[in-house]
Computed example of a mutant assay.
Amino acid sequence: MGNNLYWNVYKSLERELLSLAEVIHIDDSQLDVYSMKIADLLIRTTVEIESISKELYFREGGTKPDDKDLYFDTDCLALLESKWSLSKKVVMISSPILYLEETDNVYLTPLHKAYKRGTSSSDWQKAYQAVKHNRAKSLKKGSLKHFIRSLGALFILNIYYQNQSFNLGSNSNGNLFDASIGSSIFSIKLYPFPGIDASGIYKKNGDFEKCIYLIQATNETKESVRKVLEDLNEKIFNKAISEAQNELSQITEPLKADVLQEKIINLIKKHKDACTIVVAKENGAMLAKVSNALRFEVVLNINQY
């Protein structure tokens, strides 16, 4: 992460959590531990969330005036949610001195419902409001669980604020990528490179929206591969048509137009796989050359696909 005020404050809050972990054995059974100190950390973290979400709101095109009627949740986080699906983004607890094991405590979606208000909002936001307005009565809400989740939310917002990309060179699997992005507490999910086809469509599965970063081929090298694949697909299609025509020429009885059309489609499908193998073998050297020329990068998942 670059050197900026938000990140420096975030890292300071991380150090506070790690200091607590030196005196509290933070495992699943300890997440309800609360104190004035933890309540104060929850408040400080959420104040940072308010500040960075407002700055992101204006950077990303928000138009409401910056006054008392601009709300960090229903205005700012709501705009960011519509752009980036932040409520689905996952961070994982990866610090070796946080002894958490339960899935719900390790894999967090800390911005889930964060763009809502009141009883509909996230648990850490409700805890923040309660502690802020009546600390003595609501001190139990100033717990490790709520502090950790608010810190996870701030981590995600810092990542989107930085908007960094990382060059992988010819390494498409991202195994050298540091998924902690500079955090001592969390790591993120990285969406793997899904391959390239001639359509240019980035293939996504159910994990896509959980991932804060994704691997893609660089635009320059991707386009050269796409053009080659497009040419090969055309050769495959033409070859399959030729094979289908040869087979049709052996049919002597007349066929109705709709039956003939369906038969042509089925014959092309039938021959396509075999033709693909033939064309791939004929053009193997060229395919290897363009595949080896691919270069990869890790970029922020901003719903660009």
Rank of each mutant, 00 (worst) to 15 (best):
residue 256 K to F: 05
residue 262 E to F: 07
residue 93 I to C: 09
residue 243 E to C: 10
residue 208 F to C: 01
residue 27 D to T: 11
residue 50 E to A: 03
residue 215 I to K: 02
residue 65 P to I: 05
residue 229 L to E: 10
residue 214 L to H: 11
residue 256 K to R: 10
residue 262 E to T: 14
residue 65 P to Y: 10
residue 174 G to T: 02
residue 40 D to I: 12
residue 155 F to S: 03
residue 113 K to A: 03
residue 260 L to T: 09
residue 88 K to H: 13
residue 19 S to I: 11
residue 186 F to R: 10
residue 133 H to Y: 07
residue 51 S to R: 15
residue 204 K to M: 07
residue 156 I to T: 01
residue 271 H to S: 04
residue 71 Y to K: 06
residue 238 N to K: 05
residue 211 C to D: 00
residue 68 K to Y: 10
residue 117 R to Q: 12
residue 99 Y to G: 07
residue 66 D to Y: 02
residue 231 D to T: 15
residue 148 I to E: 13
residue 87 S to Y: 13
residue 297 E to Q: 11
residue 2 G to Y: 15
residue 295 R to M: 03
residue 208 F to Q: 02
residue 151 L to S: 05
residue 37 K to C: 15
residue 15 R to S: 13
residue 82 S to F: 06
residue 96 P to H: 12
residue 258 D to M: 07
residue 107 Y to D: 11
residue 146 H to E: 01
residue 41 L to N: 11
residue 305 Y to T: 04
residue 213 Y to K: 05
residue 76 C to D: 05
residue 138 S to M: 07
residue 71 Y to T: 08
residue 6 Y to M: 12
residue 250 Q to N: 14
residue 125 Q to D: 12
residue 171 N to I: 14
residue 200 G to A: 08
residue 113 K to M: 11
residue 197 D to N: 05
residue 272 K to I: 12
residue 209 E to M: 13
residue 267 L to A: 11
residue 200 G to Y: 02
residue 52 I to W: 07
residue 93 I to D: 03
residue 80 L to P: 09
residue 169 G to R: 08
residue 138 S to T: 01
residue 258 D to E: 13
residue 304 Q to H: 08
residue 83 K to P: 08
residue 104 D to V: 13
residue 92 M to Q: 13
residue 245 Q to R: 12
residue 298 V to W: 00
residue 100 L to S: 01
residue 273 D to I: 11
residue 32 D to A: 01
residue 230 E to D: 14
residue 124 W to K: 01
residue 166 F to Y: 07
residue 148 I to N: 06
residue 240 A to G: 10
residue 149 R to A: 03
residue 192 P to Q: 09
residue 75 D to V: 06
residue 73 D to T: 12
residue 232 L to I: 10
residue 159 I to M: 00
residue 220 E to M: 04
residue 78 A to S: 14
residue 92 M to A: 14
residue 248 L to A: 00
residue 168 L to F: 09
residue 101 E to T: 15
residue 259 V to Q: 14
residue 113 K to Q: 04
residue 130 A to F: 00
residue 280 A to N: 11
residue 192 P to N: 05
residue 89 K to F: 08
residue 5 L to R: 14
residue 201 I to Y: 06
residue 207 D to N: 07
residue 287 L to D: 01
residue 284 G to M: 01
residue 128 Y to G: 09
residue 117 R to C: 03
residue 74 T to C: 14
residue 250 Q to A: 13
residue 282 E to I: 06
residue 154 L to I: 02
residue 14 E to Y: 14
residue 65 P to R: 09
residue 203 K to A: 13
residue 171 N to C: 11
residue 217 A to P: 00
residue 292 N to W: 03
residue 71 Y to L: 02
residue 180 S to F: 10
residue 269 K to L: 00
residue 201 I to A: 09
residue 13 L to M: 08
residue 70 L to C: 02
residue 98 L to M: 02
residue 24 I to H: 06
residue 140 K to D: 15
residue 182 G to S: 09
residue 34 Y to S: 03
residue 112 H to I: 08
residue 245 Q to C: 12
residue 74 T to I: 15
residue 147 F to M: 06
residue 251 I to R: 03
residue 74 T to R: 15
residue 82 S to I: 00
residue 112 H to C: 12
residue 155 F to E: 10
